[in-house]
Each structure stands twice: as structure tokens, then as C-alpha cells.
Amino acid sequence: MVSMGNVWDRTSEFLSDNLAAVLPIALLGIFVPLVLIDNFGALQQGATPGLRLALSIGTIVATLLMIWGSLAITALTLDRAAARSAARLALRRFPAFLLVLLVMGLALFVLIMPFGVIMAVGGVDLTTVAPDAMPAMSGGAAAMLLLYLLMLLVVGLWLMARLAVVAPAIVGERLSVAAIARSWRLTRGVALRISGVILLYVVVSSIASSAARFGVGAILKLLIGSDPGVSIATVLTSIIVAAVSTAFTVLYAVFATKLFVALLAREGGRHEAVRAQ
């Protein structure tokens, strides 16, 4: 039986023993992209079309860098080798991970399609719906929309649990789309416990990020002042929020990898240390 408590203990032990190796990857591959993405979003306001395009491209590049950083943390956790080796391995497994993300993105698109169907049945003209406004619809359609949303949240949490070790499988076993089926098999019988951990993680990380953005951000704006768009206060706030988000991102990547190793042991298998190819 896989104990979530033991997996957390191994996660904490790894982070305390390997902080010096984790920190450079986390800073370059997660923290810096998060700061850039946050500030690029603020700069979009009132930007010229050319600048807006450049900022959008920069956001995509920063997002890809974050994916690489998370994979590098996974590689480092699987094999306590040098950070440079983990970075190279993450780069090699990067295309496979993007392919898996594409497949899962298409599946997510299928899951959210009923929202549009329900709104259309409720008399909503989807071509005129504002992205930041709730469209007017019949009471029955609104009830169906709420019911489907609740069902989707439950199903989504369960799917997150079943796919929790996709990234470690891609890196550690050098799989591609087959990593989805691999994760599905490994998490059989423990999805409920993993769901509880994921739910706790989402709640705690969301509260911490919100406190950093709105609590600390409000204090900085009062102390420093804030102009529209990017200012010293907003940049400092983005740095603090990025630091909190980086810590939780690293924590989850290490936890998922340690869970992968524990699930392999339960299966009767043994994790083969990641080797440079």
C-alpha cells in the first residue's frame, strides 16, 4: 500500500538534501518565467498591436521555459545527478511532454464543449458573449450549467489524480503518449488518496498566492503607490507571487515524482536511474 504520508516525507527529505541543486533550476526555469508572464500581462494594457504581439510571443516562450523547468526538477528528483544532467534530460523529453499536453488539451476541450451547447440551448448568442460577463439565460439552462460545472470539478479532480505521474513516466521511462496509460495503471486503487492530496495542495497554494497578490500587493501599493500598468509596486508584487508559486510548483513536481517511484515499488518494479543518452 502506498502511504501519502511516506511520500510527503520523502519529498521533504529530498528537498532538504538537494536544495542547492534544485534552486538554480527553480529560479531560471520557474521563478523568472512567472515574473515575466505577470509583467507581460500588465504591459498588454494600452500596448500597440506590435508590442502586444511581442508580449504574447514572450509569454509563450516563458511558458515553455516553465515546462522545461518542471521537467528538469522531475529529472533531478528521479536521479540525484548534477543539475546540468537533469536540464539536458528535460530538454530531450520536452517534445514528448508537449505532445502529451496537446492530447490532454484536446480531451479538456471535449469536456468543456457542453458548456457552449447548454448556453446555446438556453438562448445565448455565443458570438456576442463578452469574456468577462455572465450571459443572460433561462433558469433551467443556468441550473444545468451549474450542475455540469460541479460534475466537471469532481471528474477533473479524479482525472488529475489518475494522471498525476504522467510527467515522471515521460522522463523516467522515456514514454510519450503512452505515459497517459502508464499513469492510469499505476494510480489504480489510490486515486482517492491522491485526489485528497491534490485538493489540499490546490486550496493551500491558492490561498498563499492570493494572500501574496492581494494582501502584500495592497500593502506595497499603499507604501509605494501604483500607477496604471507596470509600476514598482506591481513588479515587487509579481516577484513575491512568483516566489510563492515557484515553491509550490517545485513541491508538486517533487511529490509527483516520489509518488511515481512509490507506485513502481508497489507494482513490484524498480525505478531505473535516469541515464544520460
Rank of each mutant, 00 (worst) to 15 (best):
P95D: 08
S70V: 14
D79V: 02
I73P: 00
P95A: 03
T63M: 13
R88G: 02
T74A: 08
W68N: 09
L65C: 12
A87S: 12
I73A: 08
L76Y: 07
A75C: 11
L71C: 12
S85H: 10
A83C: 01
A83P: 04
L91A: 13
R80Q: 11
R84N: 02
A90D: 04
A83S: 14
R80Y: 02
R92P: 00
A62S: 15
R80I: 01
L71Q: 14
T63H: 01
I67S: 07
T63L: 13
L76I: 06
L64K: 01
A83K: 06
L78M: 06
G69F: 12
S85N: 10
W68H: 15
T74S: 06
T77Y: 05
A81D: 09
R80T: 10
T59K: 02
S70F: 02
T74N: 13
A81P: 00
A82H: 09
R88E: 03
R88P: 00
A75M: 06
I60L: 15
S85F: 01
T77E: 06
A72Y: 04
T63S: 14
S70L: 07
A75S: 12
R88I: 13
A86Y: 00
T77K: 02
A90W: 05
V61R: 08
L91Y: 04
S70E: 14
A90Q: 08
T74E: 05
M66T: 14
A75H: 04
I67L: 14
L64E: 12
R84K: 10
A75N: 09
L91D: 00
L78A: 05
L64R: 05
L89N: 09
A72M: 07
T74G: 03
L76K: 07
A87N: 00
W68D: 09
A81K: 13
T77A: 10
T63K: 02
A62Q: 03
V61E: 05
M66P: 00
L65E: 05
L89W: 02
P95F: 01
R93Q: 11
M66H: 08
F94L: 15
S70I: 13
V61C: 05
R88Y: 10
T77W: 01
R93H: 13
A87G: 05
A82W: 01
F94K: 01
L91P: 04
R92G: 00
L71H: 11
V61A: 15
A86H: 01
A87I: 09
A62T: 07
L65Q: 09
M66W: 08
M66Q: 15
T74H: 01
W68A: 08
A87H: 00
R93N: 15
A82I: 00
A62P: 05
A90F: 10
I60T: 12
A81S: 15
A72P: 08
R88D: 00
L71N: 08
L64T: 07
A62D: 06
T74C: 14
T77F: 03
F94C: 07
